[in-house]
Amino acid sequence: MAVAIIMEFKGATLAQYKEVNQKMGLTPGGPGPAGSISHWAAETDGKLLITDVWESREQYDKFAQEKIGPLSMEAGFPAPPTTTYYEVANYFIPNTAV
């Protein structure tokens, strides 16, 4: 079942976020990691807010453990995020009609 994940990184910046994405080989508007359905990020109220939708929590948890955690600490994020999970009732995929 698809899962939505909201991560709040207090004190992290968009510059640090961009550094982590670069190290992961991810580019804005490009494809995400295997299992990722959607992703967006914003800097607000002294924190970095990231919202993802993944095919399963297991896929997200593995990616977070192997990539997000180590690379965010390497980029100088002050602490791990506060993370909230939600079961997704519905989502849309990009319209690829020409």
Rank of each mutant, 00 (worst) to 15 (best):
G11S: 03
A12M: 00
A12Y: 00
A12L: 02
A12I: 03
T13D: 01
L14S: 08
L14D: 08
A15H: 11
A15D: 14
A15F: 10
Q16I: 01
Q16V: 07
Y17I: 01
K18Q: 15
K18D: 15
V20C: 09
N21H: 14
K23R: 15
M24L: 15
M24Q: 13
M24N: 09
M24A: 13
L26N: 07
T27Q: 12
T27R: 11
P28Q: 05
P28H: 08
G29H: 02
G29Y: 04
G30Y: 04
G30I: 05
G30R: 03
G30V: 06
P31A: 14
P31S: 13
G32H: 03
P33I: 08
P33K: 12
P33A: 15
P33M: 14
A34K: 15
A34F: 10
A34P: 13
A34L: 10
G35Q: 04
G35F: 03
G35H: 06
I37W: 03
S38E: 06
S38K: 09
S38A: 14
S38T: 11
H39S: 09
H39M: 05
H39N: 11
W40F: 14
W40E: 11
W40P: 00
A42N: 09
T44A: 15
T44L: 14
D45I: 00
D45V: 00
G46I: 06
G46M: 05
G46K: 05
K47D: 00
K47P: 00
L48Y: 01
L49V: 13
L49P: 01
T51L: 12
T51S: 10
T51P: 00
